[in-house]
Design a protein around this nucleic acid. Structure first.
Lengths: 104, 104
DNA sequence: TCTATAATTCGATTAATCTAGAAATATAGG
DNA sequence: CCTATATTTCTAGATTAATCGAATTATAGA
């Protein structure tokens, strides 16, 4: 993951709605959640949500699988791991840290 | 660090110039670097750089100390640690990971 | 085929961000 | 006091992002 890719991914996570979507998907688990479920849970207008989801998919933060009429969104843990790894190497010169409670 | 604060910090890091500045400051070490030095190293026009620095300071990514005429910028490692901690709790349900090489 | 549902794309508006030159501010040193 | 240096603030144009209703596409099921 290079500089530009990292910046692009951070920018996408750096939006309240998209961060909320990602957190929701992580809570939903590795099988993800369909768009409509995200929409109901977070109460974002459908077209707005669709826009945010396509941005997240574009940089690889989520994957989307179509199952008949519904589109299931799955968070890409690996992508976020790479992102965190990059920041960790940036920040603390590679030192490990304790994970901090997320105050959900 | 709450949801909004995390989103705001990620958004600031999600810009190529600002990410480059932050990386430069981390490489510079805990004593940081003056604005002019950053400017020369990254070749960003002074007014543009000043704008980016003030944004980074606003969300707490860096601190700025005035020493006579020069302003020294210092990366806030603690802030980034909190950010990483939040993402780690988000992503992997608290599991630890190996840091990944940053491909500087 | 008709209808209802799931989601996207279109289109238009508003808001925010990026950029950088020019002017201003602050301060060190002669 | 004057000048050079460091940096910011001002200003304005260009670009990008966010928002969301309405129209559209796709598909399941009666």
């Amino acid at each position: 993951m290079d500089h530009e890719e990292v910046a692009a991914s951070l920018a996408e996570l750096g939006n309240t709605h998209r961060l909320a979507v990602f957190r929701f998907l992580v809570k939903a688990g590795h099988h993800g959640a369909p768009v409509g479920e995200i929409q109901k849970a977070l109460d974002i207008p459908a077209s707005t949500l669709s826009h945010h989801l396509s941005r997240m998919a574009r940089v690889g933060l989520i994957k989307q699988e179509k199952h008949s009429r519904t589109i299931v969104c799955i968070p890409d843990y690996h992508h976020l791991q790479n992102l965190i790894g990059f920041l960790q190497a940036e920040c603390c010169m590679g030192e490990n840290m304790e994970p901090v409670e997320a105050s959900l």
